[in-house]
């Protein structure tokens, strides 16, 4: 098993920490992982993306140009990464703020209303975990107990009180994921 994922959106949406929690959970489940961010002058409101690879084998390149899954959280990222999903691959996106919906016919596309759901439930801080839930629904590559361990490792101790809210958000994400276009 090798899963090559791009997660992309605005800075401040928790894109990098979503990737980190997923990667750390992979470490806890004894997988090989890599986490490669776009680093640089990005900040809140700018674009941010991270490539996460989770595999049973040694990982070759941490930098990729084709992905099994793209998780897309703003229009700029849609413009950049819709074309980078491998044929037959998966695209999950939050339609909030999307003006040009994806057009690919050769990949499976799902919507997740994570912004709306997180705001409604007062869970804006764990918006990214709603998104993670959507991903895990489609690709259950990490078991819930290892996600729990990944959260423990990724979050500073002073925020461990937030772990149940994070896990609740993940469950919410699994519920609200809906198909947009299926191959």
């Amino acid at each position: 098993m090798t899963e090559e994922i791009i997660i992309a959106g605005f800075g401040g949406q928790g894109v990098l920490s979503l990737g980190k929690i997923l990667a750390y959970s992979g470490v806890m489940q004894n997988k090989e992982v890599s986490w490669m961010p776009s680093y640089g002058p990005e900040m809140r409101g700018g674009t941010a993306n991270v490539t996460v690879i989770i595999s049973d084998e040694r990982i070759s390149s941490p930098v990729l140009n084709a992905f099994d899954t793209a998780i897309i959280l703003n229009q700029q990222s849609m413009d950049k990464f819709e074309k980078s999903v491998k044929p037959g691959g998966l695209l999950i996106y939050d339609p909030n703020g999307i003006t040009h919906h994806p057009l690919r016919k050769d990949i499976n596309i799902y919507q997740i209303d994570a912004t709306e759901e997180a705001t409604k439930a007062g869970l804006t801080k764990v918006f990214n975990m709603v998104v993670l839930g959507g991903f895990l629904k489609m690709k259950p590559i990490i078991a819930p107990e290892f996600i729990h361990k990944g959260l423990e490792k990724s979050l500073p101790k002073r925020h461990h009180g937030m772990i149940p809210a994070n896990e609740k958000a993940i469950e919410k994400g699994k519920e609200i994921l809906k198909p947009y276009h299926l191959v």
Partner: peptide, 10 residues
């Protein structure tokens, strides 16, 4: 280089 410095691995 910046790739190896900034990336996370096990």
């Amino acid at each position: 280089d910046g790739v190896i410095g900034q990336m996370m691995e096990k």
